[in-house]
């Protein structure tokens, strides 16, 4: 049974829309199949909860109101206890460093890897490849684009919400050995810009160790095929790993990327490509805000 058929059965059962025979067969299966019991229970709870229109409205409202209030973090440094702990740690690191330097002294001129150095490298955030994160394309960037490819003058699109024919054509992209579904979600920040999140699922019989997937996000102009942002996807294996309903076994991975750029209202496209490949595995679009906002 495919996942789609499974869902249909579960929904028919929850809606009491099964014929007598079908119902008997389903209940018989249900009595012994724990996986099916769990799946049914999850769908029942999802339907019950997400069917509450009042809660959907209230959540939105609470989020809007919460955004009006400052997010107040505790003061850095904290209490005396924390301060003392910090001092004790610093002293310990100092002693350790001194000991390492003493031990390495006289052997080589090369500096010994002191505890302090190791500690500070651990605390450094991973270096960000700024070259792959171009800033939002405002006028100067577009001019550079035009200058770079004089042979193909891009047709500027009337406004930020009009579709881009070239991008639209990619939307039905087939993903071959990787089945990808992705969706965009956005939250509006107090400054009116949007934080865009692309989340989804990748399924594949086998994920090569060196496989790397890139998420590229474009505005509706997509000038010079230049993405606003490129992010390397971080794939998290779904526990249990295998999709037991699909034909054959597929491994499931989820991904979720938050764009660093805050986006203006408009139409955006996003592509997921395997690193080094040309054609996208998945293409999607997201409209942020409404025209005229």
């Amino acid at each position: 049974m495919s996942t789609e058929q499974l869902y249909e059965k579960i929904e028919a059962y929850l809606d009491r829309a099964m014929g007598r025979e079908e119902l008997a067969a389903f209940e018989k299966e249900l009595a012994t199949d724990q996986e099916l019991q769990r799946e049914l229970a999850l769908h029942r709870r999802l339907h019950q909860e997400l069917g509450k229109a009042g809660k959907a409205r209230l959540r939105k409202q609470l989020q809007e109101v919460a955004a009006e209030f400052p997010t107040e973090d505790p003061p850095k440094g904290g209490t005396l206890g924390k301060w003392l702990l910090g001092m004790a740690l610093a002293a310990l690191i100092g002693v350790l460093a001194w000991w390492l330097v003493q031990r390495a002294g006289g052997q080589e001129n090369a500096p010994a890897p002191t505890a302090q150095q190791q500690d500070s490298t651990n605390l450094q955030p991973a270096p960000v490849d700024t070259a792959s994160l171009p800033t939002a394309p405002d006028a100067p960037l577009q001019e550079v684009d035009r200058a770079a490819s004089p042979s193909k003058p891009p047709q500027p699109i009337a406004d930020a919400f009009s579709p881009n024919a070239r991008m639209e054509a990619l939307l039905g992209a087939k993903s071959g050995e990787y089945a990808i579904t992705a969706d965009a979600g956005a939250t509006q920040r107090p400054d009116g810009r949007y934080e865009l999140v692309i989340a989804g699922l990748l399924r594949t019989p086998e994920l090569p160790e060196n496989a790397r997937f890139l998420l590229r996000v474009y505005d509706n102009q997509a000038l010079g095929n230049k993405p606003l942002e490129e992010i390397s996807l971080k794939l998290d294996p779904v526990e249990g790993g295998e999709d037991i309903y699909a034909f054959g076994k597929l491994k499931n991975f989820t991904f979720r990327s938050v764009l660093k750029n805050r986006l203006k209202p408009g139409l955006y496209y996003y592509l997921i490509i395997a690193d080094g490949e040309e054609s996208p595995l998945f293409a999607g679009k997201a409209t942020l805000g409404r025209p005229g906002e």
Partner: peptide, 21 residues
């Protein structure tokens, strides 16, 4: 549940809203 729902795209959210109704 709600946070997962809110992570879906607009299209999916609208569709599922109607479906759950």
């Amino acid at each position: 549940f709600w946070e997962a729902f809110e992570r879906l795209g607009d299209d999916c959210q609208r569709l599922l809203r109607l479906f759950f109704d």
